[in-house]
Structures are given as structure tokens and as C-alpha cells.
Design a protein around this nucleic acid. Structure first.
Lengths: 140, 140
DNA sequence: CTGTATCCCTGAGGATACTG
DNA sequence: CAGTATCCTCAGGGATACAG
């Protein structure tokens, strides 16, 4: 080893392959998944109710995100062969457990968002963004 | 009210304004933030060490993400006025607490990823993706 | 009502070259 | 070493129109 510094492998923190973490992160990081999941948290809703409950979502993204969530087994889709058609979406147990996990994260966000906002505001106003200079400073 | 169904307001689940949740979701949803945070979990690292520890990250994204994280107060940047220059990045307490929260989510992912993978595989193979048809099915 | 199909635009992010 | 600047690609996602 040429470098005495601790680096070991790529991303030591995650055990082995972290692909599934990225998958979950990508899912909850996208614009609508969490919103849909949390909206379904109160109980099953049909397509049009979801669209009404989630302002700004397009049909395209609603359909697409619902398909993804269903594919992951986070929600179920139930089509009633009626006229006019009716389709209901509902959280699965798996989906509900993910929702709980995300709500925990939301709890963190709620606790610390003012602190973060303060930090960001301070950084932008004072322009301290370029980091701090330690006492150790010594040229040459 | 024309609709007897429960919809109430837009996104009832989130209390009041959920903007800060989106901020956190966007941050941990982006491609590199979580990777950087978790890599710094073992202790402070300098720029080049981060780049070496995180395969595939470009200088552009490394710098940019570090600035964002510093702006949020999740990491600190310390520049030593030496030749050659040395800059160290380290997790703040706030950053560490976020890391803990994310690790909790990673725990969920680790527990359920096989289930999700199974669901997705089943959906793709059998083409069941179009949802299920309830017994209630009745046309006209 | 519940979607699909198409067009289009924006911005995240990679590659590369250059600077202090 | 630690960035900055520039260019360029590609995919997320909005708008709109159409279909079963």
C-alpha cells in the first residue's frame, strides 16, 4: 500500500453491495413516490382522487409512479370492471413499512430544518462558504 | 362538497408545509450526497481521498456536493495553507445525525430489498403488472 | 374515468481542459 | 493538490392530445 491514510476499499461504510440502498434512495428521492405513498397512508384511493389530492402531478407521472410502486410491491392496484371504470390503489404492508421509515426521516427533517435553514442563510449572507482556516496555517 | 369520498386537503399526511422534507429528500436522493456523508462517517478526509474513495465521482460533482453539504452545515471544510494545499472535510454533529437517520433507512432497505426484488421480478415475468381484478367485477 | 402516446424543455451530471 | 470553467448528453418530467 502506498498510501498510509485509511481508504481501504470504495465506500467502506456500506456493507458489500449497496445497490439496493441506491434503489430505495432513488425511489424516495424522486418527485412523487413519497407523496403518493403518504397520500395513500390514510387508506385506499382511486386514480382521480390521487390526482386531486396531489396538486401539480401530471397524469403521465401519476400513472408511471403508480406502476413503479406497484412493481415494487409497495402498493396494490385493483380494477373494478364497471362503467365508468374504477381503479383503487392501496398501500401494502411493505409499502406501509417504507412509509414508516420515511416518516422517521421526516421526523429528523422536522427537528433539524430550522438549523439547516440557519446554516444555509448564514453561509449565503456572510460568504463564509469557502471554509475555515485553521491555526495550523503555515506556508512553505 | 360534491364528492363524499375523503380527500380533504392536498396531501393531508404532511403537517402544514412539507417543503423541508422535500429538501432533505432531494438531498439524500441525489447521486452523491449520501455516499459522501457515509464515506466521511469513518473520520475526516481530504478532497483527493474522497475522490479516491468514491469511484466514479467527477471533480465537478464532488466539489459541488461538498459545497451543498457544507452550506447545510452537514460537513465542515478546513483549508490548511500549505504547499501543496491540503483541505479536509469532516462530518458535523448535524451531519452525523443525518447519517444515522439515513442508516436507519438503509436498514429498512437491507431488510426488504429481497422482497422488493422478488416482487419486481414476479411482476416483470408474469406481466401481472396491470393489477388484480376483484370478485366485485360487474360490467354495466 | 383511467389511462397512453407524443412532443418538448430543463437541469443533473459526465468529460475535459485549465488555474492558483 | 484542490478546485473552476466549459461543453455536451441524456433522462426526468410537464403539456397536450388521444384511446378504451
Amino acid at each position: 500500500m502506498a498510501t498510509p491514510t485509511r481508504i481501504s476499499g470504495p465506500c467502506q461504510t456500506w456493507p458489500e453491495d449497496s445497490a439496493f440502498i441506491r434503489e430505495v434512495l432513488d425511489r424516495i428521492g424522486d418527485k412523487w413516490s413519497v407523496l403518493i405513498i403518504s397520500t395513500l397512508g390514510d387508506g385506499p384511493l382511486r386514480y382521480s382522487e390521487l390526482q386531486a389530492s396531489i396538486p401539480g402531478i401530471s397524469q403521465r407521472m401519476l400513472t408511471q409512479t403508480l406502476k413503479n410502486l406497484e412493481g415494487d410491491g409497495l402498493i396494490t392496484r385493483t380494477a373494478y370492471a364497471e362503467i365508468p371504470p374504477r381503479v383503487e390503489y392501496e398501500l401494502t404492508d411493505l409499502g406501509r413499512s417504507l412509509m414508516d421509515a420515511v416518516m422517521a426521516l421526516a421526523g429528523w427533517a422536522a427537528t433539524h430544518h430550522s438549523e439547516i435553514a440557519g446554516n444555509r442563510a448564514a453561509t449565503e449572507l456572510t460568504g463564509v462558504g469557502r471554509g475555515k482556516v485553521p491555526v495550523t496555517a503555515s506556508a512553505g
